[in-house]
Nucleic acid binder design. Structure first.
Lengths: 105, 105
DNA sequence: TATAAATACAACCATTTGGTTGTGCAAGTT
DNA sequence: AACTTGCACAACCAAATGGTTGTATTTATA
């Protein structure tokens, strides 16, 4: 099992997706993310660490508070993978079509 | 920790993404997936079980062989989530623009 | 019929994950 | 100065994950 801390893994956890959702309207500090989350501050902090390590959340200290801001750029990686997969998948049918077209001749 | 077996979790594992990739060109039986994977048949079988449970791979018995076929439809869920997130994220800037436009008056 | 091939099922194992509590420390507030 | 707020760090824990080996079963094939 290799060390893997990528976007795919980051968004795999529902709690982390919830955090991302909360951050979409603007930066929050940890306390605000914790509110109504049903998870302890430390739990949230751990998730933020993961999200930060894979570049999905940037953290900036502001006095004693730490502001968390979402970064969606990395999601490109996920969409790209899906699109590439779909492309290859569709080529499969195109080849089949060509084959059928040839056999008809 | 709730039982979660969704597409997000399914594609989080690199080995499972590798399996999907292999299946894009057409259905394969387990043995063919195992080839050059560096993982035992049982390991692959476990991953296939996960992929099957979340609807990303369909398994059909054919004699003594079991054919595995990719199903990309479920990836919509992932793309949809990303698109929705991006949309909300962009609205944040639109609101800021409107605010700035108003203050200029 | 004996044997090989393809798989299923179960037990096991180390590591990771997702969470907790508890302690301590820095930064504002009263 | 005393107190509160916000957070970091560490230890701990149960469950899940990602893999293994070992055994049994079914299906082709020589």
């Amino acid at each position: 099992m290799i060390e893997r801390r990528d976007v795919f893994q980051a968004i795999a956890d529902p709690t982390r997706r919830m955090i991302i959702q909360k951050l979409l309207r603007g930066p929050l500090n940890i306390g605000q993310i914790v509110e109504d989350s049903g998870i302890t501050r430390q739990g949230i902090a751990k998730h933020l660490k993961v999200l930060n390590e894979c570049g999905m959340v940037i953290l900036t200290q502001k006095g004693r508070e730490q502001f968390c801001e979402a970064r969606l750029d990395k999601l490109d990686e996920v969409v790209d993978w899906v699109q590439a997969s779909r492309k290859m998948w569709n080529q499969r049918f195109e080849k089949l079509d060509k084959f059928l077209a040839n056999t008809k001749k």
